[in-house]
Write a protein that binds this DNA or RNA. Structure first.
Lengths: 238, 238
DNA sequence: CGTCACGTTGAGGAAGGTCAAGTTGGGTGG
DNA sequence: CCACCCAACTTGACCTTCCTCAACGTGACG
């Protein structure tokens, strides 16, 4: 629970009472193997799960099986907090790597909302940030070319991983195959491969064996028109 | 405020106290002319606005000026409720037609969250549905072809307008130019025009003078792979 | 040493962008 | 009433991006 608390505190202060309320949430730890679903597709949910370790991805799919990831989740993310108010999930969550999640019953979350208004707003904020990420991806998918889209994804993931201590020195682990990368960016596998090569050729990144290194953050961010405001990493009382 | 209340009650019952709390919100009515912004781009906000009449669109933009709409707002939508917890908006809101909005100060919303936990969850739900719409659009943009994307948009807007009594008998008013339609679907103007023609040629819709008629809902929905679950129009206690 | 998943490459084609030139119809001023 | 204007819509031609299909390379693992 502590990485989650640390992430929340990037956004607004928590009182000791609030931190305790989070730590006291009844929750069950669960392991998910790479390649399996953390949450079944379009399930009716009674728990929401917080990602402790591993990288996961929310996806929607068409009847043909074509899949589009709509967000990447990193440790400290409340993966399907949406489900708490939506009740029916409209998407699935896939584990890119072996992952550990903490299932929190909706009953317990409901109690939090009855007792801790400020903490409730903080949880609300988490889902609103998800929506902001979706909007950024929509802009990328609708209006940016392949290299810019990939560059944007890399910038976003680097910052989000850095917040929870999983990236530093312009390096991070990204356990995505090129097939999966294509399903994130709206590319075919072949095009994912060629777009990666384009960024490598421009000496912007290296990406090998799931290890990514950013060689020139400034140029990468410029290519992506990356502006981290939407991640809401500044402290701002709510 | 009443269309908003009616829409909420499609999702879960409100108590009389909660309805009164909403009606008692201090709010200022504001007119916005077609073509102007309801909310400035990337503004710091202290009020959130509820759309009373007119059609608006949230958009993000690139430095080049290329614009991508990320959601269409219809009357009864709390257009930038996000801003209540985000504080800084990451996007702008454009009025497609002359519109009336109700500005609600964040202070008043904060009071609601302190006093009415269930109502707070209902407001939270509204922003979570926005995120679900974004995900559906991401799937469309990433994985569906032109005609399917347009068909999906039409299905979504028809249902959402019908909920607030602004569409019936398979007809609705959509005050979008083809330029704007392109900015919604990630098309150039030329391609927006040709995709419209494709749906007309297949006798699925008519679209003229901002009046849209759906000629064959079943085939249109099938083409779009439209499943309205994500709009959460079923009653489900939270 | 074979198998399998993943990555890479080439060739051809479809979807969609760009540019440029009409067309249409409502609104306005003479 | 007519001429003009302007925004929105439409069409054609050409080009880029990206997809599809198919083959091949590479390295981990049994």
């Amino acid at each position: 629970m502590d990485p989650f608390i640390r992430k929340l505190e990037r956004r607004d202060d928590l009182s000791e009472v609030e931190r305790e309320a989070l730590r006291a949430l009844p929750a069950r730890l669960r392991e998910v193997r790479a390649g399996r679903n953390v949450v079944g597709y379009a399930a009716r949910v009674q728990v929401s799960c917080l990602l402790i370790s591993g990288i996961c991805g929310r996806f929607s799919a068409l009847a043909s099986g074509a899949r589009q990831y709509t967000e990447i989740s990193v440790p400290g993310d409340f993966v399907d907090l949406h489900g708490f108010v939506m009740k029916h999930l409209d998407h699935g969550v896939h584990a890119f790597s072996n992952s550990t999640v903490l299932d929190v019953p909706h009953e317990a979350l409901k109690t939090v909302t009855e007792r801790y208004p400020h903490l409730t707003r903080m949880l609300w904020l988490e889902t609103v940030i998800d929506a902001a990420v979706h909007r950024q991806w929509l802009l990328a998918l609708g209006r940016q070319n392949g290299p810019a889209r990939l560059a944007h994804l890399i910038c976003e993931l680097y910052l989000r991983l850095e917040v929870v201590g999983l990236a530093s020195d312009m390096r991070m682990d990204l356990p995505l195959t090129q097939q999966e990368l294509g399903e994130v960016l709206g590319f075919s596998v072949v095009h994912a491969n060629r777009t990666l090569q384009a960024l490598r050729r421009r000496d912007l990144i290296t990406w090998r064996d799931q290890k990514v290194e950013i060689l020139d953050w400034a140029r990468l961010a410029q290519l992506a028109e990356f502006d981290p405001t939407y991640l809401r990493l500044q402290k701002e009382p709510i």
